[in-house]
Every structure is written in C-alpha cells, then in structure tokens.
C-alpha cells in the first residue's frame, strides 16, 4: 500500500477544505472498501480524509413518516436498531446481511452509497424505498443518484451526510449472496406504500442498481408473489461474469422479487 497524508477533521467544512487542497485526496469512513482497494494497488490517494471524527456524523432518527440515517452509521448499528426494526424491518434485515460481523462493525451507509458498487446492498434499498441522499450541498433522489458502475451524482468533494428513507406500508429484501464474498449476486428490495405505489430496487445484476419497472407495474395491479415471478426480465443489459450469466441473473430478479412479496411486512 502506497503512503499518504492522513487527516482527521472535526467538521464536514474542514473535510471539504482538505479535499480541495489535496492533490488526489479521498474521504474514508469505515475504510472497508477503500483500504482493500488500496492494498491491491487499485487506488493510491495522496491524502486520506478520515470522516469518522466529524461531530454528529452518525446516528439514527425515526419519525412517523421516515427513517433518517446519518452517513457514518455502521451496518451493525442499522441492523440492530430497535427503531428501524419497527419502522422498516426489511432495512435492518438487509444491513444485517452485509458481509460478516467485522464488516458490519466498520462499514457505513455513507461509504456504501457513495461507492455504488454494482453488487452492494444499500443501493437496492435506496431505490426500493425511494430514499433521498443528503449531502453537505443538497438533497438528491435515489432515482437520480446511481448513474453507472461505481458512479454517482456526487460532485467532486461532495460529502454524503445522511440518507432518508420514507416508511412504506410493507417491504422486504431478498438476496442471493455470493458464497465467497457475501456481496449480492443479485438482490431485490420491494416496497409498497400506503397509496399502493410499488418500488422494486435491484442490485448485483447490472453495472448499477436499477428499478425493475416491469415487476413494479405487475405488482401495482396485483401485489402477489405469482404476479412478480410471472414477469420475464430481459437479460440484454444484465451482467455476465464468472459467477453467473445474465440469463441466470434475469431469472433471479423475478424469483427474488416473488419471495420478497411473499415475505413483505
């Protein structure tokens, strides 16, 4: 791993200023994507700006209508939050399926969303629940946030400060984990709000997380497992790699959506 300058600012303003000053600076939260990437020589930032000492950077707030999770909140904190388990049980369950215990003790929601790994779990929840991503500059709808493989709507130096999830009537998450890495080979997050609007967020299947609009349309008419599984997903834009073909992933999307609908609460 190449050397770098290490900074630990106490405010987002100071962090953003350091980012402007650094030649090729990177923010770090849990470090559970950044450090493995650096160890493999795939990244060699000149400066690391550790966000974890920023005041009020982590925490969970649940209101009648939404769950707000600050960027530095770990997967373990989300998975074990009594309030989230009550408001959006599927969200806590999903966080509890990320990696192993040690990854959940360090990895953060902000890091996961900013990184936009095509196989990461949070992007499916953001799309499946219609979340809003808040930064030090603005608020961005999840639908406009994930723009490509490891690509997001974040501008240079922009810091995610929180993610806000509206509380649905019911929701569920289903994941086919890659047995080696635990990342999603394909994962599906389904929700239905009080007005009956359905959202289906999919991760692990394409270059970026996306909404399965065909399944959403079918479920809007008939919210049943059969209705989801009867939708045939086109495999054209999906991913083929050493783990699975695009056709296999396409099938998984309908199957997992069906299981999610059956489990939704």
């Amino acid at each position: 791993m190449e050397n770098f300058n290490y900074h630990r600012p106490a405010t987002t303003t100071a962090a953003a200023a350091l980012m402007k000053k650094g030649k090729d600076a990177k923010y770090m939260a849990g470090g559970h994507t950044l450090l493995p990437t650096m160890k493999q020589g795939l990244a060699a930032p000149t400066d690391i700006i550790d966000l974890t000492a920023i005041k009020n950077f982590s925490g969970i707030k649940v209101s009648k209508t939404s769950v707000s999770i600050k960027a530095g909140t770990t997967h373990m904190e989300v998975a074990t939050s009594k309030e989230i388990k009550k408001a959006i049980p599927a969200l806590a369950e999903m966080a509890g399926k990320i990696g192993g215990v040690h990854v959940r003790h360090k990895g953060t929601i902000g890091g996961s969303v900013a990184n936009a790994d095509p196989a990461a779990d949070y992007p499916s929840a953001c799309l499946g629940l219609g979340a809003t991503i808040e930064t030090n500059k603005r608020k961005i709808e999840a639908d406009k946030f994930f723009t490509g493989m490891f690509a997001t709507a974040l501008k240079d130096g922009e810091i995610i400060t929180a993610v806000h999830f509206p509380i649905p009537k019911k929701s569920a998450h289903q994941k086919f984990p890659n047995p080696a890495s635990r990342y999603a080979l394909t994962g599906v997050f389904v929700s239905q709000d009080a007005k009956g609007k359905v959202r289906v967020g999919v991760t692990g299947a394409a270059a970026t997380a996306f909404r399965a609009t065909d399944i959403e349309a079918a479920l809007s008419k008939d919210f049943s497992a059969k209705s989801a599984t009867s939708v045939k997903i086109a495999s054209k834009s999906l991913m083929t790699d050493m783990h699975a073909t695009a056709a296999y992933r396409a099938n998984l999307i309908s199957v997992l959506a069906g299981r999610a609908v059956a489990a939704a609460k």
Binding site: Y6, R8, G31, H32, L35, P36, I48, D50, T52, M76, V101, H102, V103, H105, K106
Partner: peptide, 19 residues
C-alpha cells in the same frame, strides 16, 4: 486478524493504526 477495538470485533488488517 480479528481483534477487539473498543469492545468490537474488527479486522485489524483493514484498519489504520493512526485511526
């Protein structure tokens, strides 16, 4: 490489000493 830091099991190969 798992150790406990402030009471939590973490991977010490994926944690900076300075942090």
């Amino acid at each position: 490489c798992v150790v406990h830091v402030d009471g939590k099991a973490i991977k010490s190969c994926t944690t900076l000493a300075v942090a």
